[in-house]
Design a protein around this nucleic acid. Structure first.
Lengths: 204, 204
DNA sequence: GTCTATACACTGATAGAC
DNA sequence: GTCTATCAGTGTATAGAC
């Protein structure tokens, strides 16, 4: 391994370890020692490469959510925009469940760290709000309060804890034969879209 | 104040402080010192009255969610049962937002503390699942996957962070004139019910 | 029951060898 | 760049005065 590549490698190992641990134990519940143990590197390397635990947190989002939902919507067909929005969000959640998990925890406790993520979150929030209002104006959606509806949709999109003890082992309901990973992905996106669009009485 | 009542008073002050802080900073992010400062009592009293920080956590739910959603549903009219379920949940969230907040954080990180709350959570989860399946069997609801639909509904019910920076100050949309607290409550319940019931195409 | 003072493990961060 | 050893600070819990 080339010397100059080692730094990158260690940084990535730390980021992956931190992602896993932050999602599982929260930011405060995770110690730098745990991160380094999980990553298999020495304790000092978090400070060396990132300059502290908090910067690992920010690097997590810069690395794994670089242009997360940077898509713009022209609001010409809000129903279609909403579908695209939901789809993109659901796919990101499938790709990076830990990141969504961390984000949700931080949003819940209004952590001070959110300030530096405000751009990401606020943009999303605003996009959704604009789509909803445009769709309502065009008669495509049916809801009373934009503020609450944004909450409902975000809640639907964000919450997906497949804890073993909440979903006890039981026969696959409809999906009797094991779907492939790709099929399962597609299904989740479809189901989520359907629930949300139904929720605001939009055609699918 | 009667001597024997002082203990109760201090315990309640600690519980209220802990509820506020756990919701805001998470369990691990909250220190016993912070709890006691917020409660205005000496550091030692958490250990004295509860036997440690973790027991304060459990006492929180025993105290403020004594028979939370103990309601039974006969599943004769699942659509009505679901409405009652959503209503009861939404009202509890209005009454004890911090508790829902804490619960959500813990569920997200699958904290070890959840084990002792399993009965509460699992019962809820199961009730909702049973209502959904009964309603589907009766043709009242329309959805493909019970598992995912439970997730969507719980997400909708649980997520409601009214952070000032997510909902920037802007003119009350529909609700132009200030509603009373009771009216606002009623509205939230109605909106939530509507979104969820629409989501599974149930009549309202 | 409530307080202050303290014990002692563990935290994040750094210094210095390699 | 990476490691081990160590620091100062803070965590929870307890001992003992009142």
């Amino acid at each position: 391994m080339k010397p100059e590549a080692q730094g990158k490698d260690v940084k990535l190992k730390i980021l992956n370890a931190a992602k896993k641990l932050f999602a599982k134990k929260g930011f405060e519940g995770t110690t730098v020692r745990q991160i380094c143990d999980e990553a298999g590197v020495a304790l000092a390397l978090v400070s060396y490469h990132f300059g502290g635990k908090e910067n690992v947190f920010y690097a997590l989002f810069e690395t794994f959510a670089p242009a997360f939902l940077a898509a713009e919507y022209d609001l010409e067909d809000p129903a279609q925009d909403l579908q695209a929005f939901v789809r993109e969000f659901a796919l990101f959640r499938l790709a990076e469940p830990e990141l969504i998990n961390i984000l949700q925890q931080e949003v819940m406790m209004e952590s001070p760290r959110l300030e530096k993520l405000q751009s990401i979150i606020y943009v999303l929030w605003r996009q959704l709000r604009l789509i909803l209002e445009a769709g309502k104006a065009k008669g495509q959606f049916e809801f009373d309060s934009t503020r609450h509806t944004v909450h409902f949709i975000v809640g639907t999109l964000v919450f997906s804890r497949s804890s073993p003890f909440l979903d006890p082992v039981f026969q696959d309901e409809n999906e009797s034969n094991q779907p492939t990973a790709a099929e399962a992905e597609k299904m989740v996106v479809e189901l989520t879209t359907k629930f949300i669009l139904n929720g605001i009485k939009s055609k699918i």
